[in-house]
Design a protein around this nucleic acid. Structure first.
Lengths: 239, 239
DNA sequence: ATAAGACCCGAACGAACGTTCGGTAGCCTC
DNA sequence: GAGGCTACCGAACGTTCGTTCGGGTCTTAT
């Protein structure tokens, strides 16, 4: 229990530069943090909590109106529809995770440690932003058409990053395993957490990441080493 | 790709002995398979598919009415509410899985193999009943009150079975790991499958179970053996 | 001071929702 | 052949849904 609330430090993609109502943005104030952007961010935060609690279909715009202290009609000044609201939450969450991840990955070239970085980054963000994270995973196939396609593209990018990390490890250690199965098993482990994690009972992100990293990496490394012998020495992995 | 469609063989708890409409059941015909029971089972199957596709909140009774070829009002002859419909699906699915599992577990006493049996049982049922399985996991905390409590009790039972299997293994091999983290990581791996499995691309249940069993058991076994040395010998796990 | 926006609201729109009501057609028993 | 029961239906009930309309008020630039 080192820190109770984790503040992600790195370059989070700001959700700025958006239209008021249905119009377009004036022009070059990409510096963001206008009043519009701050209100929108506040609304997204409330919406994430409500979607998390009652599900996207189960939550109503009136719920959000009440929680945010704004009239029902007033909400539509900030987004065009309930569906776009979900899209904004998912896109911002996903892009922030990936941006954080890329920043952290620059600090290490060791394949094994980079996988640990991936896990730790995911868990830290997940536990620090539980609501948005549950909305991201639970409402995975809710969005359709363009919005859905865009989020799905980001998801494929995230998948790809993880797969590349694993294949780097495989090459470096001369291993032999199914990358797809490994990635998706890992995703299952780390995305499932939102269904059970209780901060009063369970460990914090760092410790969970260590435990899951041990489990996963031992599994991947020990599997079948280069098809020859089965001596899996590297059972302790941190430097 | 041994068999393409898996028929679960064992004692599946029949969903029989239920009331027509709001009345009670006549009495002693627990032998089931009345016309009422068959129709109900058919409706549950349609409902599972619809809940799977559109989510519980997103699906309407009119959708079910259309799919089942029965009038909207006619549906309520078989259950009292939409909520009870979800409850019946979840309860029946969960109880069938557990019944299958208990039957299979009797065939082996080896701790490691029993865990493999657990995984294989779960994956076989999951892939053979994708819709119901997605409804079970995706609508995990949708039910409230008595219905919710009852399903949650079955879930705890299932969790408990897996935890006991793991602790048997731990004792037998003198290992040291967090049972809770291991169980929940395993649950994540196997419950996540419904989000990605594509029968045209991915392996069948048996092969997936072998792959995930290798990954998970290697991870658990190799972790830290008995706190002394780090020689993780048992990297190949099948007998 | 005034025009032009950004910001926000009360009130309503039509559609869709889960559920219920009153009734009917068929079946089996006496 | 009357009574009772199961199985089912058309039509509606009252509610809630996402969204829109026609305005306001407040801020900012000229």
């Amino acid at each position: 229990m080192a820190q109770s609330h984790i503040e992600i430090p790195s370059p989070a993609p700001a959700l700025s530069g958006r239209k008021p109502a249905h119009g377009r943005r004036p022009a070059a104030d990409t510096a963001a943090d206008t009043r519009f952007d701050r209100q929108l961010a506040r609304l997204l935060q409330h919406a994430a909590r409500i979607f998390c609690d009652k599900g996207f279909e189960g939550a109503s715009m009136r719920d959000l109106s009440r929680a945010a202290g704004m009239s029902l009609a007033g909400l539509y000044h900030y987004f065009a529809s309930k569906e776009e609201l979900l899209y904004l939450i998912q896109k911002h969450t996903f892009e922030t995770i990936i941006a954080n991840l890329r920043a952290r990955l620059e600090k290490s070239a060791d394949p094994e440690e980079r996988i640990r970085i991936f896990i730790e980054n995911h868990l830290e963000y997940s536990l620090a932003n539980k609501e948005a994270m549950k909305v991201l995973t639970h409402e995975d196939d809710t969005l359709k058409n363009e919005h859905g396609a865009e989020v799905r593209a980001i998801k494929r990018e995230y998948y790809r990053i993880c797969l590349d990390l694993l294949e780097d490890l495989r090459k470096a250690k001369g291993l032999q395993f199914s990358g797809r199965l490994a990635v998706l098993s890992l995703f299952g482990m780390i995305n499932w957490i939102y269904t059970w994690h209780n901060p009063r009972v369970d460990a914090d992100a760092g410790e969970l990441a260590r435990g899951m990293g041990d489990l996963f990496l031992s599994g991947v490394l020990a599997g079948k080493a280069k098809r020859k012998s089965s001596e899996a020495k590297n059972s302790e992995t941190r430097p």
